[in-house]
């Protein structure tokens, strides 16, 4: 599906989608958004970039197989639960290390969700991309 229009517009869409997805991810705790939506937006942006460029284009962009994103995301999700264990609390009791800043292990967890969603969607998509 190599289309000149798609190839050209995707150059603009990809960075916009990625920046927007990270914005949605970060604001998710207080406004509509979060890892799931952010991940889907990023995946859609990458898909638009990859469809005209094929599987090689996708790998060239990501530098890794999409499956690696899934593993990284799951690890982050699990890692977010470890601090609680060290403090002898139930697994995944989220921690807020900075009293004044609203940054805690939930952010690590949500980034994990974000990566798994991107990885999964792109794994499914990668097969349907032309080489």
């Amino acid at each position: 599906m190599s289309s000149l229009i798609l190839t050209t517009t995707s150059r603009l869409i990809l960075p916009a989608a990625l920046i927007f997805s990270i914005y949605v991810l970060l604001r998710g705790h207080n406004e509509p958004g979060g890892g799931f939506i952010g991940g889907l937006i990023a995946a859609a942006g990458i898909a638009v970039h990859a469809i005209p460029r094929g599987r090689t284009g996708l790998i060239a962009l990501l530098r890794v197989w999409p499956k690696a994103l899934i593993g990284a995301g799951m690890l982050l999700g699990i890692a977010a639960g470890i601090p609680a264990l060290l403090l002898a609390e139930p697994f995944l009791t989220q921690q807020w290390p900075f009293a004044s800043l609203p940054i805690g292990t939930t952010l690590v967890f949500d980034v994990g969700v974000y990566l798994v969603v991107i990885g999964s969607v792109l794994t499914f998509l990668s097969y349907y991309l032309e080489n």
């Binding site: 979060g34 799931f36 889907l40 969603v117 999964s120 499914f124 097969y127």
Partner: peptide, 17 residues
């Protein structure tokens, strides 16, 4: 529902595969 939406997408995609 939020997670269910994504999971049902995965289910359909896997079935298609």
């Amino acid at each position: 529902i939020l997670t269910a939406i994504v999971i049902s997408f995965a289910l359909v995609a896997f079935t298609v595969v």
